[in-house]
């Protein structure tokens, strides 16, 4: 009796295992590999990935190396290929070093997508951006011009309004691309804006940005009218320096900033305008596009990503424009990350 019971249990158990394996096999496995796991930015992205997994019925998850090390990321992608995932969505530490593994993945029929890497797309199916990078470069310049006009001062080519830009480092491709766009845009449209010195590589540290802006204030005095921080800590450091010198009404601070960190600075007026995209959107969009491709649908402009509107395609870059603009503390607080 007892033996019979345990045999039945065993068979049932085996059936269940079989059933789940089959059920699992039906849903696509989509791995999102980020630059570094466990930092707030990518935790937020993981929320978007989880949401997409739930809504789209796929097995999507987010992983990343413990340090932002290109080699560790390549290794991780390599392991996922061996494991036989259906799609790889990667936020590269170093886009070039991933080319060989991407080629390997594609030769095995794995869908390969990237994010934040619009300039190195040779070995990928698509790169997905949740912002229009040209637009992103122009908006801070527009914000500066708007603030200058509001101040009532007249600036001309002979009496220019000086600005300085802070980037994460001189080798971060996106930061420097935005900076190039901004300079070009300002030159052609607003000749009364003048870049006082070449971009400084401090925007990944509050302390460095703060020190640099203090030095800039000393050097250029009232010629310095605006600071643009392209890395998300640049505007915070700049705002602290400006506040310390009581110049929040004289110097315009704009740029990328994580909404929750910039709230107090928007409140005090030390930061005048901040912008960013929501990493959760990027996480969702990557999983969404991956699933469409796995189902054999063609990706074309005008296709809709839920809640993000129609996509546009430029070469191998898919983009939706979801720049989050923050003019006031309320704007920033309402974004919720």
């Amino acid at each position: 009796m007892r033996k019979k019971f345990s045999v039945i249990l065993l068979i049932l158990g085996l059936l269940m295992v079989l059933f789940f394996t089959v059920a699992q096999a039906k849903s696509y496995e989509i791995a999102v590999v980020v630059k570094i796991a466990g930092i707030p930015w990518f935790n937020r992205m993981a929320e978007g990935v989880k949401k997409a997994a739930k809504e789209l019925g796929v097995n999507a998850y987010l992983v990343g190396p413990s340090t932002a090390d290109p080699a560790a990321q390549v290794q991780m992608v390599e392991d996922l290929i061996t494991r036989g995932v259906d799609a790889l969505c990667v936020v590269p530490n170093d886009a070039k070093s991933l080319i060989p593994v991407f080629q390997k993945a594609k030769s095995q029929g794995i869908v390969v997508l990237t994010h934040e890497s619009p300039f190195e797309t040779t070995a990928v199916d698509w790169d997905i951006e949740t912002i229009d990078s040209v637009e992103y470069g122009k908006l801070p310049i527009n914000a500066i011009v708007r603030k200058l006009v509001e101040s009532g001062e007249k600036y001309t080519e002979d009496n220019p309004a000086g600005f300085v830009m802070l980037v994460g480092s001189l080798t971060v491709p996106l930061h420097n691309y935005w900076a190039d766009v901004a300079v070009e845009y300002a030159k052609t449209n607003f000749p009364f804006l003048k870049e006082l010195t070449t971009r400084l590589p401090t925007a990944e540290s509050v302390a460095d940005s703060r020190a640099a802006v203090l030095d800039l204030i000393t050097t250029y005095g009232d010629k310095l009218k605006a600071v643009i921080g392209w890395g998300s800590l640049g505007p915070i450091g700049a705002a602290q320096a400006v506040q310390e010198k009581g110049l929040q009404d004289e110097i315009i601070v704009v740029g990328s900033a994580i909404p929750s960190t910039v709230v107090p600075y928007l409140q005090s007026g030390a930061v005048d305008y901040a912008q960013l995209w929501d990493p959760a959107d990027a996480g969702y969009a990557m999983v969404y596009i991956a699933k469409q491709m796995l189902e054999g649908k063609t990706i074309e402009s005008g296709m809709e990503i839920p809640r993000m509107g129609p996509i546009s395609i430029n070469g191998k870059v898919i983009s939706v424009n979801q720049i989050k603009m923050m003019w006031t503390a309320d704007d920033a607080a309402s974004l919720g990350f």
Binding site: L170, L196, T197, T198, R199, L200, P201, A211, A212, D215, L216, T218, T219
Partner: peptide, 15 residues
């Protein structure tokens, strides 16, 4: 040195 490089208006590439 760090302070002076900005004060001397040297491009960041040289820092």
């Amino acid at each position: 040195i760090k302070n002076g490089l900005i004060l001397m208006k040297l491009p960041a590439y040289w820092h």
